[in-house]
Nucleic acid binder design. Structure first.
Lengths: 240, 240
DNA sequence: CGAGCCATTGAATGCCATCAATTTTAGTGG
DNA sequence: CCACTAAAATTGATGGCATTCAATGGCTCG
């Protein structure tokens, strides 16, 4: 069903790779200064994952952590009877792979051609001892992930199909602004099936609801994956 | 709607309060040995919250962290239009109050008379510098909370009403076993309304589904809050 | 340019929500 | 201990939103 994992390593010897990294300010490496980040660079590897490839699988032993440099990723859980629930989409600057268990509790797959910065788990954990600030920063990132997951719980527990889609668009918009890109229009790097499996809906409901929003001039679509929010500020937000 | 917060402080001078604590082995304090835990004891306070009282409110400044010693707690989010979603139930050994933001993103309320161990946020964070092991342990606990939240996302996105209730009972059962209590029967310390607001259902659906499970001899009830799982091992589990 | 996948639209079904009424439980005071 | 009351839980009838089943349309990539 899913493509087999594959990737290419490009550990180039260009100096100061990390120092000039585009996501340095939002990823955990941001708390290290120029002199210290050289040491982090020494234990990291660049990895490239083409669209559709798996980064790791639910059930695999946890041996590596990742920072996302470029692209986007979906993480999803599969049940024994084949149901699939996407539990999150990850973007540049996000930290990937940490778990409280020995094995990954979800599968990670690239939604587009994606660049990752890879760390060996043991090596990075030893690095924490030298730079406790990093562990503190990662604790902060995980707490943020938890808050995002709780918002998603609210969405799935209480929102209608229309509310789920609009909230989803607002989340992507805010994510883009955080990265310094424009918050409108937005680009959906995932399929309708992925959106449905993330929002607890079916593809038909997603499609139908999108058509409604188009008819009511709340959104405008360019192709099937680019959306302009006609009046972003008027879209109701129920949390925060 | 909700009762006003109230609590009583009992910072007794009995020595080695922490050393003998019933949840020491599962809470974050478990990683400190007897000699170090005395220092942790010096910065902690015992607090008691009667049933129905609030521990803190969504929007309050984060100034304190808590360990749960005894009792149980619900944490919930309210939307502007009054919808309420319970995002978690917490039990002895759980860590409460950490946030990636300046303010709490949810309200915490005692489901029964509850004993907490309270820490000033700044003081405990300074304590981390002296004992980095604690921060590491808390990172582990937060990662676990995240994994639990992702399971809940799966439940809300993909499970039927019946599956949600059965999974809920299994979770409580496993939680009880983790605490060394019996895993069967289980005790529901929350109301039907709370269960509904946690599982993304209405009280009527919860009640009706419970009646079905009773009729089919899958569960047996003693009163309205004690449940015996007639054949726990035959209840299907779709994850893990 | 055709094949296959993805997305859209339509019609019918079903699960859970809503509205409404009754029963049971829990808490209080006599 | 029992009567009384309010809240909580259960049960019934009906309705609606999202799903399911089915068919068409449109994009993308050899």
């Amino acid at each position: 069903m899913e493509p087999v994992a594959s990737c290419t390593t490009r550990n180039k010897n260009n100096n100061h790779r990390c120092a000039q990294c585009s996501v340095r300010l939002i990823a955990f490496c941001g708390i290290l200064d120029d002199s210290d980040i050289i040491q982090l660079e020494a234990i990291s590897k660049n990895k490239s994952f083409p669209k559709g490839t798996n980064i790791f699988f639910q059930g695999d032993q946890v041996k590596t952590f990742f920072n996302i440099k470029q692209g986007s990723i979906k993480i999803y859980k599969l049940s024994h009877d084949g149901r699939k629930q996407i539990v999150g989409f990850l973007y540049p600057g996000d930290f990937l792979g940490m778990s409280d268990q020995e094995v990954y509790t979800y599968t990670a797959e690239a939604l587009e051609d994606t660049q990752l910065c890879q760390f060996n788990k043991i090596v990075l954990e030893n690095f924490f001892l030298k730079f406790p600030k990093i562990e503190n920063k990662i604790l902060n990132l995980v707490n943020h992930e938890l808050a995002v997951a709780q918002d998603q719980i609210f969405l799935l527990g209480k929102y209608s199909a229309r509310e789920r889609l609009l909230q989803f668009f607002l989340n992507i918009s805010n994510q883009r602004e955080k990265l310094g890109w424009g918050g409108n229009p937005i680009r959906l790097s995932m399929s309708r099936t992925d959106i449905a499996n993330y929002l607890g809906l079916t593809i038909e409901t997603v499609s139908r609801t999108l058509s409604e929003l188009k008819n009511e001039q709340i959104i405008r679509m360019i192709g099937t994956h680019d959306i302009f929010l006609n009046n972003k500020k008027q879209i109701p937000q129920y949390l925060n």
